[in-house]
Amino acid sequence: MDDIDRKLISALRHDARASLSDLALGLGVSRTTVRGRIDRLRQRGEIVGFSVVLRGDTARDPVRGLMMLGIEGRGADRIIRQLNGLSAVRATHTTNGRWDVIVEIGTPTLEELDQVLGQIRRFDGIAHSETSLLLNTRKSGR
């Protein structure tokens, strides 16, 4: 992948619906070059798809947070299953740092977030946790 490919991917991340003409103008190359590069990036698996972000997707969770969990013993798989069963849990991530699992949570209100946090803290095997509210998202894959 060269510099033009990286710039093309950056432009597509900003606006995946940009016309080939606009992309070509922004990159200083021809439309044919842009089309060929997009096709090549898709064939090589660098670009695996395009998505649509709806207004409702961004407004769905006015209160969002990341909860970092320390798990005692070997209960991580069980706890992740429990977490994924909660409607407020948007994603779970295993990690290799201080925390064993990072949980993305979204709720309509702070009170509901507090209830979810309390519920998770009561899971058998949760040794300690720390939660940070997400105040603003500047770039998201969704």
Score class of each variant (00 low, 15 high):
Thr137Met: 06
Met68Ser: 09
Asp2Asn: 07
Leu135Ile: 10
Arg40Ile: 00
Arg40Pro: 05
Glu46Gln: 11
Arg122Leu: 11
Gln43Asp: 14
Val48Gln: 12
Ile71Asn: 03
Asp114Leu: 10
Gly97Pro: 09
Gly141Arg: 08
Arg74Gly: 12
Asp2His: 01
Glu112Asn: 06
Val103Pro: 01
Thr92Gly: 14
Ile120His: 02
Gly106His: 11
Arg37Ser: 01
His93Glu: 04
Leu83Glu: 06
Ala16Thr: 13
Val116Asp: 12
Phe50Arg: 11
Ile4Glu: 14
Met67Ala: 05
Gly49Phe: 03
Thr32Ser: 13
Leu117Trp: 10
Ser129Met: 14
Gly36Ala: 12
Arg142Ala: 12
Asn84Arg: 09
Pro108Ser: 07
Gly56Asn: 10
Gln119Glu: 15
Glu46Lys: 12
Glu130Val: 10
Gly118Val: 11
Arg142Asp: 01
Leu41Val: 06
Val116Tyr: 11
Ala91Arg: 15
Ser129Tyr: 15
Gln82Trp: 01
Arg6Gly: 04
Asp2Thr: 00
Thr107His: 13
Gln82Val: 01
Leu27Arg: 00
Leu83Lys: 03
Val53Glu: 05
Arg55Asn: 07
Arg13Ile: 07
Arg90Asn: 15
Ile120Ala: 02
Ile120Trp: 09
Leu27Met: 05
Val103Trp: 08
Val103His: 01
Leu134Gln: 14
Gly65Asp: 02
Val52Met: 14
Val63Ala: 08
Leu27Glu: 03
Arg60Gln: 08
Arg121Asn: 15
Glu72Met: 04
Thr131Met: 14
Ile126Ala: 05
Ala88Val: 07
Arg17Phe: 05
Gln82Lys: 13
Ile4Trp: 08
Gly56Lys: 09
Gly70Gln: 13
His93Cys: 00
Leu86Tyr: 04
Gly125Tyr: 00
Ala11Leu: 15
Arg17Lys: 13
Thr94Asp: 08
Val101Leu: 13
Arg142Met: 04
Asp15Cys: 09
Glu46Trp: 07
Asp100Ala: 06
Leu83Val: 01
Ala18His: 05
Thr95Ile: 11
His14Gly: 12
Asp124Trp: 11
Val53Met: 11
Ser87Lys: 14
Phe50Pro: 07
Leu117Val: 04
Ile102Lys: 08
Asp39Ala: 10
Ala11His: 14
Leu117Ala: 10
His93Gly: 02
Leu86Lys: 09
Leu86Asp: 03
Asp2Phe: 00
Ile9Thr: 13
Arg74Pro: 03
Asn96Gly: 13
Arg81Met: 01
Asp5Pro: 06
Ala88His: 06
Asp61Ser: 10
Gly36Phe: 03
